[in-house]
Amino acid sequence: MTTQVLSKPQQKARLRLGPIALIVLLALISAGLIALWSGDPYALNILTYTFLFAGLAGAWNIIGGYGGQFSLGHGAFFGLGAYIVGSLYFNQQATPLLTLLPAAAVAAVISVLISWPTFRLKGPFFAIATMAINEVFYALANYFDDLTGGPAGLAIPFKPAWENLIFVDRSSYALLMLGYMVLVLLATHIFTNCRTGHYLVAVREDEEAAAAIGINVTWTKCVAMALSAALTAFGGGLFAMYIRMIDPPTVFTLAETGVKFALLALIGGAGTLFGPMVGAVAIVPLETYLRGYLSDYRPGMTLIVVGAVMILAALFLKHGIVGALRKHFGSQP
């Protein structure tokens, strides 16, 4: 008798990278870009902003994209992080290395306290309420001027040292922001593949059905919001040490922060791992370039372009760049 050997099912020879491998690959390419442009402060500034906003849009994407909760108030958490880190450094000379994580934790707690009641609101009402919360933070930052410097803001003195997260060399900042972006990507990947992450997508798709199979809807949203807010505040702290000048309009202006995080994520593709990063790569360098190129001409020209891009993206790019590419190449959305 001969034993019959069952043939193994044929494996497709197509190369398919897992998300972690893709993140590592992206990090290596980005680090290569930083090395390539290490002598060019203009290019490094663009890279720094691109990585930072890719991270911030990614943080928004957790609750806004995967959770479908269209928050426009993430500027509040961004500003909170920037003010906690900036003010503790300014007033107590506390190193950002020790204050970044507590700032993220404070933002997470505050975000849950605010969101827990606000999550009762659906769709546009949630968006409007979060905008109002952003404006409350704006007013409070102006009011408590012994902590925040009020309307005049906080000017953080330039004392280069790695423990201050202040560097003479701009490529260090670019690497720092790259690290932040990778952190957000990894956190998103891990969270969306855990049980609560799957619950979150179920809640986004159909809240009543999710509740019916026993998912605690509000709790799920709150966990996602806490993670999102913590990562946003962390980015805010890094931003404070990069620009070293924090005032209420810089961190709380809707078009510059809260709405912009959503804009980048939506243009790239909300609810996808790499979408926010794609959006940041598409928009931030363009915006920085236009700002330099058009600002001599007339005021406001850059934002005219940003506004037009938003309208066109809403009309013609509903699933973002990533969604459009997936549709084009025929893989499932």
Binding site: G300, M301, L303, I304, V306, G307, A308, M310, I311
Partner: peptide, 8 residues
Amino acid sequence: GLLILLEN
């Protein structure tokens, strides 16, 4: 987006 566009 229209708000930003018209304002500017």
